[in-house]
């Protein structure tokens, strides 16, 4: 009996050892090192970084560009989940129960389901380059071409400081919606059909069907989506870096924390300072995760 138990433990340990070591080496250890590098003035090429204590953090608090980046992340944190979830829920509802009988999707829903998922299949960098062309500020831009043909001046989707941020948000929503349509569809599929039928027999309209049946029963899935999207909003990087002018411009109007970290590390060669920014971002992300887990504790509806 004891031997068996021992064997079993050994078996489990041997399976766990590889992933745990990989995780320690490639995830945990770099994190710990980042905390150390954050307290040095390492510029990336020397073998002997100088320890400078918390200087980098003091500097960071006066770094207006970084705090501007933080406000952009904060804005994304609120807007990205909100807009994406509303659109995705709407689409998922139409695709699954929005049809005439209230139990099937609207006509052609199978086709739309595939189309909605397309953006998710594209690599982020591809999306960013694609939208650079879509947003081109001359007649060969996909949006500006028609606008200019109509006699409306070219809109600086990426070159106008007041518009660029919204363009970034738009692209992120565009890319994210497809996945959440699928996620919500799966959630809807697990809701028993007779609930919808019963509600219909009682004369519920589509709107009340959505707010009284669909949304409450999907609430768990929505919360999951909210956390995912929140994390996406906090560590957005590729879209901003590749798509916007001057990697987060014009005039820093679209910059985010990750872009500032990258800029300081790989353009200004201030690895120590960049690590300090990374540490702050780490705490923001962990803070968000804890907060969202706390807030989302709620009784499940059993059915």
């Amino acid at each position: 009996m004891f031997f068996n138990r021992y064997r079993r433990g050994l078996f489990i340990t041997s399976f766990l050892a590889a992933p745990v070591i990989l995780y320690l080496v490639y995830v945990i250890a770099p994190y710990i090192q980042a905390f150390y590098i954050a307290m040095t003035d390492w510029r990336g090429v020397t073998a002997t970084p100088r320890f400078i204590g918390l200087d980098n953090f003091v500097r960071l608090f006066n770094d207006t560009v970084f705090w501007k980046a933080v406000t952009h992340n904060a804005a994304l944190l609120v807007l990205l989940p909100l807009i994406t979830i509303v659109i995705a829920l709407f689409f998922a509802f139409l695709l699954n129960v929005g049809g005439a009988q209230g139990v099937t999707g609207i006509r052609g829903s199978k086709f739309y389901r595939v189309v909605f998922f397309f953006p998710q299949v594209l690599a982020v960098a591809v999306v960013a380059v694609l939208f650079q062309q879509v947003f081109r500020p001359d007649a060969s831009g996909m949006l500006n071409g028609p606008l200019m043909a109509l006699g409306l001046g070219p809109v600086g989707f990426l070159s106008d400081t007041d518009i660029a941020f919204w363009s970034v948000l738009g692209v992120m929503v565009w890319q994210a919606v497809g996945f959440y349509v699928v996620l919500f569809s799966a959630g809807l599929a697990s809701i028993p059909k007779d609930m919808f039928e019963a509600a219909q027999i009682d004369g519920a309209s589509r709107v009340s069907l959505f707010f009284r049946i669909t949304l409450p029963l999907l609430w768990d899935t929505v919360q999951t989506a909210w956390v995912y999207l929140g994390i996406l909003a906090l560590d957005v990087f590729a879209i901003v870096w590749v798509m916007t002018l001057q990697h987060g411009g014009p005039d820093r109007s679209t910059t985010v924390m990750a872009a500032e970290i990258y800029r300081n590390a790989f353009e200004h060669f201030r690895f120590g300072y960049a690590s300090a920014l990374g540490v702050v971002m780490f705490f923001f992300t962990v803070g968000f995760a804890i907060l969202s887990l706390r807030l989302s504790r709620r009784e499940r509806i059993e059915y």
């Binding site: 021992y6 050892a17 070591i21 320690l24 080496v25 250890a29 090192q33 150390y36 390492w42 970084p49």
Partner: peptide, 25 residues
């Protein structure tokens, strides 16, 4: 997992530590 196994596992940690030295100079 007995204490002994845990210790054995812990013996592997320095290996990981050596590998991890790649991010810092």
């Amino acid at each position: 997992i007995s204490r002994r196994e845990l210790l054995r596992g812990a013996a592997l940690v320095p290996v990981a530590g050596a590998l991890a030295a790649c991010a810092t100079p």
